[in-house]
Simulated scan of single mutants.
Amino acid sequence: METIKSYINSAWGVFKSMGINDIIDILILSYLFYHIMRLIRETRALQLAKGILLLVGSYIIAVVLNLQTIKFLLKICFQWGFLAIIILFQPELRRMLERVGRSKIADLASFKAGDTEVESDKIRAAIRAVCDASVKLASTKTGALIIFERKTKLGEQIATGTRLDCVPSAAVLGNIFVPNTPLHDGAVIIRNGKILAAGCFLPKPEKEELINKQLGSRHRAAIGMSENSDAIVIVVSEETGTISVAENGELTRGYVEDTLKRLLYNRLLPDKNADSTKENSLAGRVISKWKK
């Protein structure tokens, strides 16, 4: 009991000595901690965070009860734990840093070169072509996987496919996804309004076991790609002809031409479309993430 009282008195002493700078420090750390928890949500890193909290709690109990052996073992774990976290969770840490790099603060500091109006016109034309192609492919139940690259560059995926560097159109996309052709199984990647590559292979989802078994390989690949980047991924199901969109690890379904076009305009040309919340409500069915 004396040990507990001493800890309480120490905590009260720290609280009484706090100043404005300390309060600001705590608020900033709380804000950062909140966003870190949001970033690692639904990832393996969330289980890691729970495990770390459990070890910290065990260490506090060991200190209070004066359990020397457990204290010694936990100190060793903490000494090498940070290095182990970096090694084991390198993909999650990389994604976290990529998302931080895609923040609006980073946008303010970035230098944007080139004619933005010309680029916007190309993106608009690409959106119209993709929407037109998606509807035609859906009507014939032809499977398709189309990716709009955004801030995260997809060089690794582009390297696995065939470089095309052509202007997108319904005819070109329709020919690419004709069954039994060399490029129909992979994904088409569009950068700055141009088809950069086709037949590209995509990463698997992080937690594939949680995805509904009704979803095929294209939908799983779309979710995996959206988890690893900020890309917008359009999927056409070859079984049902349903048009789906994957973004930030979440899959929404039931799009038609108008709702798909509105979503793409809002995501790819946000300055021209201030309302970015209505398009999901117009989709036939919206699923936050397909699970068992």
Rank of each mutant, 00 (worst) to 15 (best):
T3N: 01
I4F: 07
K5N: 09
S6K: 05
N9K: 15
W12H: 11
G13I: 06
G19V: 12
N21E: 13
I23K: 07
I23W: 04
I23H: 08
I24E: 07
S30Q: 10
L32W: 02
L39M: 13
E42W: 12
L46G: 15
Q47I: 09
K50C: 15
G51W: 03
I52S: 02
I52E: 08
L54F: 04
S58I: 04
Y59F: 06
L67A: 08
Q68N: 14
T69A: 04
K71Y: 00
K71D: 03
C77N: 08
C77S: 13
W80C: 09
G81M: 05
F89Q: 08
Q90Y: 05
R99Q: 10
S103Y: 05
D107R: 14
L108I: 04
G114N: 03
V118Q: 08
S120G: 14
D121E: 03
R124L: 12
V130M: 13
C131K: 09
S134M: 10
V135F: 06
K136N: 12
A138V: 01
S139G: 04
K141E: 14
K141T: 14
G143S: 06
K151A: 05
K153N: 00
E156N: 14
I158N: 06
I158Y: 04
A159L: 06
G161W: 00
R163T: 01
L164G: 00
V167S: 13
A170E: 14
A170T: 10
V172F: 04
G174I: 02
G174H: 03
N175D: 14
N175S: 09
L183N: 02
H184K: 14
G193Y: 07
I195V: 15
A197S: 03
A197T: 03
A198I: 00
A198V: 11
A198N: 09
G199A: 07
G199R: 05
G199F: 01
F201C: 08
P203T: 00
K204E: 15
E209A: 01
Q214D: 09
H219A: 14
H219C: 10
R220W: 08
I223Y: 06
I232H: 09
V235H: 13
S237W: 01
T240C: 05
G241E: 11
S244Y: 03
S244V: 12
V245Q: 11
E257K: 15
R267L: 03
S276T: 07
K278L: 13
N280A: 08
I287P: 10
W290K: 00
